[in-house]
Design a binder for these strands. Structure first.
Length: 258
DNA sequence: GTTGAGCGTT
Protein backbone atom coordinates (compact mmCIF):
# COMPACT_ATOMS: atom_id res chain seq x y z
CA UNK A 1 0.00 0.00 0.00
CA UNK A 2 1.07 3.51 -0.57
CA UNK A 3 -0.92 5.56 1.84
CA UNK A 4 0.24 5.71 5.39
CA UNK A 5 -3.00 6.47 7.10
CA UNK A 6 -4.72 3.29 6.11
CA UNK A 7 -6.26 3.24 9.54
CA UNK A 8 -7.26 6.86 9.41
CA UNK A 9 -5.56 9.87 10.92
CA UNK A 10 -3.10 8.59 13.53
CA UNK A 11 -2.43 11.75 15.46
CA UNK A 12 -2.95 15.19 14.02
CA UNK A 13 -2.62 16.98 17.29
CA UNK A 14 1.14 17.11 17.27
CA UNK A 15 1.76 17.15 13.58
CA UNK A 16 2.04 19.85 10.97
CA UNK A 17 0.17 19.29 7.78
CA UNK A 18 1.51 20.34 4.43
CA UNK A 19 -0.55 20.56 1.33
CA UNK A 20 1.10 19.30 -1.82
CA UNK A 21 -0.49 20.42 -5.04
CA UNK A 22 0.21 19.90 -8.70
CA UNK A 23 1.41 16.39 -8.18
CA UNK A 24 0.75 13.90 -10.91
CA UNK A 25 -2.15 11.53 -10.64
CA UNK A 26 0.31 8.73 -10.57
CA UNK A 27 2.38 10.11 -7.78
CA UNK A 28 1.91 8.06 -4.66
CA UNK A 29 2.80 8.63 -1.04
CA UNK A 30 5.79 6.39 -1.48
CA UNK A 31 7.11 8.78 -4.05
CA UNK A 32 6.60 11.76 -1.82
CA UNK A 33 7.91 10.17 1.32
CA UNK A 34 11.61 10.01 0.33
CA UNK A 35 11.31 13.59 -0.80
CA UNK A 36 9.68 15.00 2.27
CA UNK A 37 11.32 12.76 4.79
CA UNK A 38 14.63 14.20 3.77
CA UNK A 39 13.79 17.47 5.39
CA UNK A 40 12.17 16.24 8.56
CA UNK A 41 10.31 13.59 10.42
CA UNK A 42 7.36 12.69 8.28
CA UNK A 43 4.74 11.26 10.55
CA UNK A 44 2.14 10.52 7.96
CA UNK A 45 1.34 11.05 4.33
CA UNK A 46 -2.13 11.01 2.94
CA UNK A 47 -3.29 11.35 -0.61
CA UNK A 48 -7.01 11.90 -1.22
CA UNK A 49 -8.21 9.46 -3.78
CA UNK A 50 -11.32 9.06 -5.80
CA UNK A 51 -13.92 6.91 -4.16
CA UNK A 52 -14.69 5.19 -7.40
CA UNK A 53 -11.58 4.91 -9.49
CA UNK A 54 -9.12 5.07 -6.63
CA UNK A 55 -6.97 7.46 -8.60
CA UNK A 56 -5.13 10.24 -6.89
CA UNK A 57 -6.91 13.56 -6.96
CA UNK A 58 -3.74 15.38 -7.71
CA UNK A 59 -2.74 16.57 -4.29
CA UNK A 60 -1.41 15.12 -1.10
CA UNK A 61 -1.02 15.91 2.57
CA UNK A 62 2.26 15.46 4.32
CA UNK A 63 2.41 15.70 8.05
CA UNK A 64 5.61 16.63 9.77
CA UNK A 65 6.48 16.19 13.38
CA UNK A 66 7.99 19.62 13.72
CA UNK A 67 7.04 22.94 12.22
CA UNK A 68 10.56 24.02 11.44
CA UNK A 69 11.11 20.88 9.45
CA UNK A 70 7.83 21.37 7.68
CA UNK A 71 8.73 24.96 6.95
CA UNK A 72 11.97 23.86 5.42
CA UNK A 73 10.22 21.27 3.31
CA UNK A 74 7.83 23.90 2.01
CA UNK A 75 10.66 26.10 0.86
CA UNK A 76 12.71 23.26 -0.49
CA UNK A 77 10.16 20.99 -2.04
CA UNK A 78 7.98 23.76 -3.34
CA UNK A 79 8.66 23.81 -7.02
CA UNK A 80 10.33 20.46 -7.13
CA UNK A 81 9.56 18.38 -10.17
CA UNK A 82 8.03 15.06 -9.26
CA UNK A 83 7.15 12.51 -11.88
CA UNK A 84 7.55 15.20 -14.48
CA UNK A 85 5.28 17.71 -12.84
CA UNK A 86 6.09 20.58 -10.60
CA UNK A 87 4.60 20.20 -7.18
CA UNK A 88 3.40 22.97 -4.94
CA UNK A 89 4.12 22.56 -1.27
CA UNK A 90 2.49 24.79 1.29
CA UNK A 91 1.02 24.66 4.76
CA UNK A 92 -2.46 23.29 4.96
CA UNK A 93 -5.01 25.97 5.64
CA UNK A 94 -7.78 23.64 6.65
CA UNK A 95 -7.77 20.52 8.72
CA UNK A 96 -9.41 17.20 7.92
CA UNK A 97 -12.32 18.25 10.08
CA UNK A 98 -12.36 21.81 8.88
CA UNK A 99 -10.32 23.08 11.78
CA UNK A 100 -8.43 26.26 11.43
CA UNK A 101 -4.79 25.61 10.97
CA UNK A 102 -2.00 28.04 11.51
CA UNK A 103 0.93 26.98 9.41
CA UNK A 104 -0.18 23.41 9.46
CA UNK A 105 -0.71 23.48 13.18
CA UNK A 106 -4.24 23.26 14.44
CA UNK A 107 -4.60 26.36 16.55
CA UNK A 108 -8.33 26.39 16.86
CA UNK A 109 -11.06 23.82 16.48
CA UNK A 110 -14.32 25.17 15.30
CA UNK A 111 -17.70 23.45 15.38
CA UNK A 112 -18.50 21.37 12.36
CA UNK A 113 -21.95 22.84 12.03
CA UNK A 114 -21.63 26.53 12.77
CA UNK A 115 -18.62 27.70 10.87
CA UNK A 116 -19.14 25.41 7.96
CA UNK A 117 -21.02 28.20 6.28
CA UNK A 118 -17.74 29.89 5.59
CA UNK A 119 -16.98 30.06 1.92
CA UNK A 120 -14.31 27.47 1.71
CA UNK A 121 -15.34 26.11 -1.63
CA UNK A 122 -17.76 27.66 -4.10
CA UNK A 123 -18.85 24.25 -5.21
CA UNK A 124 -19.80 21.06 -3.51
CA UNK A 125 -17.27 18.59 -2.33
CA UNK A 126 -16.69 15.31 -4.01
CA UNK A 127 -17.70 13.42 -0.91
CA UNK A 128 -21.12 14.97 -0.98
CA UNK A 129 -21.77 13.55 -4.39
CA UNK A 130 -18.72 11.86 -5.67
CA UNK A 131 -21.12 9.74 -7.65
CA UNK A 132 -21.61 12.65 -10.00
CA UNK A 133 -17.90 12.95 -10.45
CA UNK A 134 -18.41 12.62 -14.17
CA UNK A 135 -19.89 16.02 -14.64
CA UNK A 136 -17.48 17.79 -12.39
CA UNK A 137 -14.59 16.31 -14.27
CA UNK A 138 -15.80 17.80 -17.50
CA UNK A 139 -16.12 21.11 -15.78
CA UNK A 140 -12.45 21.44 -15.21
CA UNK A 141 -11.39 19.50 -18.25
CA UNK A 142 -13.74 21.11 -20.68
CA UNK A 143 -10.71 22.02 -22.71
CA UNK A 144 -10.23 18.33 -23.15
CA UNK A 145 -12.59 18.14 -26.08
CA UNK A 146 -12.74 15.77 -28.94
CA UNK A 147 -10.29 17.72 -31.01
CA UNK A 148 -8.13 18.48 -28.03
CA UNK A 149 -7.24 14.83 -27.76
CA UNK A 150 -5.21 14.98 -30.94
CA UNK A 151 -3.06 17.81 -29.79
CA UNK A 152 -2.25 15.85 -26.68
CA UNK A 153 -0.22 13.48 -28.76
CA UNK A 154 1.86 16.39 -29.93
CA UNK A 155 2.43 17.95 -26.59
CA UNK A 156 3.40 14.69 -24.98
CA UNK A 157 6.60 14.77 -26.95
CA UNK A 158 7.61 17.89 -25.13
CA UNK A 159 8.03 18.36 -21.47
CA UNK A 160 4.81 19.89 -20.13
CA UNK A 161 6.61 21.30 -17.12
CA UNK A 162 9.60 22.55 -19.06
CA UNK A 163 8.11 25.96 -19.60
CA UNK A 164 6.86 26.88 -16.11
CA UNK A 165 9.75 25.06 -14.61
CA UNK A 166 12.61 27.33 -15.44
CA UNK A 167 10.52 30.34 -14.67
CA UNK A 168 10.31 29.37 -11.06
CA UNK A 169 13.65 27.70 -10.79
CA UNK A 170 15.51 30.82 -11.75
CA UNK A 171 16.28 33.17 -8.92
CA UNK A 172 16.18 30.33 -6.47
CA UNK A 173 18.33 27.26 -6.24
CA UNK A 174 15.75 24.56 -5.75
CA UNK A 175 17.82 21.79 -7.16
CA UNK A 176 20.80 22.37 -4.96
CA UNK A 177 19.34 20.33 -2.15
CA UNK A 178 20.17 17.05 -3.76
CA UNK A 179 22.83 16.64 -1.13
CA UNK A 180 20.12 15.87 1.33
CA UNK A 181 19.59 12.51 -0.27
CA UNK A 182 21.63 10.90 2.44
CA UNK A 183 19.21 12.22 4.98
CA UNK A 184 16.80 9.37 4.68
CA UNK A 185 19.41 6.70 4.41
CA UNK A 186 20.98 7.80 7.64
CA UNK A 187 17.72 7.46 9.47
CA UNK A 188 15.46 4.73 8.29
CA UNK A 189 12.00 5.49 9.52
CA UNK A 190 10.01 2.55 10.90
CA UNK A 191 7.04 3.56 8.81
CA UNK A 192 9.05 2.92 5.77
CA UNK A 193 9.52 -0.76 6.46
CA UNK A 194 5.80 -1.42 6.17
CA UNK A 195 4.92 0.95 3.45
CA UNK A 196 7.78 0.37 1.10
CA UNK A 197 7.89 -3.33 1.64
CA UNK A 198 5.65 -3.82 -1.36
CA UNK A 199 8.37 -2.44 -3.58
CA UNK A 200 9.65 -5.94 -4.21
CA UNK A 201 8.79 -7.20 -7.69
CA UNK A 202 8.38 -10.68 -6.29
CA UNK A 203 5.20 -9.54 -4.61
CA UNK A 204 3.56 -9.47 -7.96
CA UNK A 205 3.79 -13.23 -8.02
CA UNK A 206 1.01 -13.23 -5.51
CA UNK A 207 -1.33 -12.21 -8.27
CA UNK A 208 -0.33 -14.35 -11.27
CA UNK A 209 -3.63 -13.85 -13.02
CA UNK A 210 -7.29 -13.41 -12.49
CA UNK A 211 -9.16 -16.59 -13.23
CA UNK A 212 -12.60 -15.15 -13.72
CA UNK A 213 -13.74 -11.79 -14.85
CA UNK A 214 -16.77 -10.16 -13.20
CA UNK A 215 -18.61 -10.56 -16.43
CA UNK A 216 -18.01 -14.28 -16.62
CA UNK A 217 -19.03 -14.77 -13.05
CA UNK A 218 -22.30 -13.08 -13.61
CA UNK A 219 -23.27 -15.88 -15.93
CA UNK A 220 -22.51 -18.49 -13.33
CA UNK A 221 -24.84 -16.81 -10.94
CA UNK A 222 -27.56 -16.59 -13.51
CA UNK A 223 -30.98 -17.56 -12.21
CA UNK A 224 -31.17 -20.00 -15.05
CA UNK A 225 -28.37 -22.06 -13.67
CA UNK A 226 -27.10 -23.18 -17.06
CA UNK A 227 -26.00 -20.22 -19.07
CA UNK A 228 -23.37 -21.83 -21.20
CA UNK A 229 -25.32 -20.97 -24.26
CA UNK A 230 -25.41 -17.39 -23.13
CA UNK A 231 -27.81 -16.62 -25.91
CA UNK A 232 -30.82 -18.77 -25.22
CA UNK A 233 -31.14 -19.17 -21.49
CA UNK A 234 -34.80 -18.43 -21.63
CA UNK A 235 -35.61 -20.62 -24.60
CA UNK A 236 -37.69 -22.76 -22.33
CA UNK A 237 -39.61 -19.82 -21.05
CA UNK A 238 -40.53 -18.54 -24.43
CA UNK A 239 -42.10 -20.52 -27.18
CA UNK A 240 -40.39 -20.44 -30.57
CA UNK A 241 -43.51 -18.78 -31.84
CA UNK A 242 -43.04 -16.08 -29.26
CA UNK A 243 -45.83 -17.24 -27.01
CA UNK A 244 -44.81 -18.29 -23.49
CA UNK A 245 -47.89 -20.41 -23.28
CA UNK A 246 -46.16 -23.74 -22.86
CA UNK A 247 -44.46 -22.83 -19.65
CA UNK A 248 -46.90 -20.80 -17.68
CA UNK A 249 -50.04 -22.84 -17.96
CA UNK A 250 -49.71 -26.59 -18.33
CA UNK A 251 -53.41 -27.05 -17.72
CA UNK A 252 -54.71 -25.09 -14.76
CA UNK A 253 -58.33 -25.18 -15.83
CA UNK A 254 -58.31 -28.92 -16.15
CA UNK A 255 -57.77 -29.54 -12.43
CA UNK A 256 -59.52 -26.43 -11.34
CA UNK A 257 -62.70 -27.58 -12.86
CA UNK A 258 -64.34 -28.30 -9.61
C1' DG B 1 -5.69 5.74 -22.71
C1' DT B 2 -6.80 10.88 -20.11
C1' DT B 3 -7.30 15.60 -16.90
C1' DG B 4 -5.25 19.98 -13.43
C1' DA B 5 -8.72 23.74 -9.55
C1' DG B 6 -7.87 23.06 -4.96
C1' DC B 7 -7.46 21.49 1.17
C1' DG B 8 -7.83 15.32 3.87
C1' DT B 9 -8.98 9.32 5.22
C1' DT B 10 -11.03 4.80 9.34
Amino acid sequence: MSHFGRSGPPDITDTYSLLVLNITFRTSADDLFPLFDKYGKVVDIFIPRDRRTGESRGFAFVRYKYADEAQKAVERLDGRVVDGREITVQFAKYGPNAERIHKGRITETLPKSRHRSRSRSPRRRYRDDYRDRDYRRRSRSRSWDRYERDRYRHRRSRSPSASPDYYRSRGRGRYDDDDDDDYDRRRQSPIRSRSFDSASPARRSLTPQRSLSPLSRSRSVSPYGHGRDGRSPNSRSVSPRGHPADSRSPSPRHSDDG
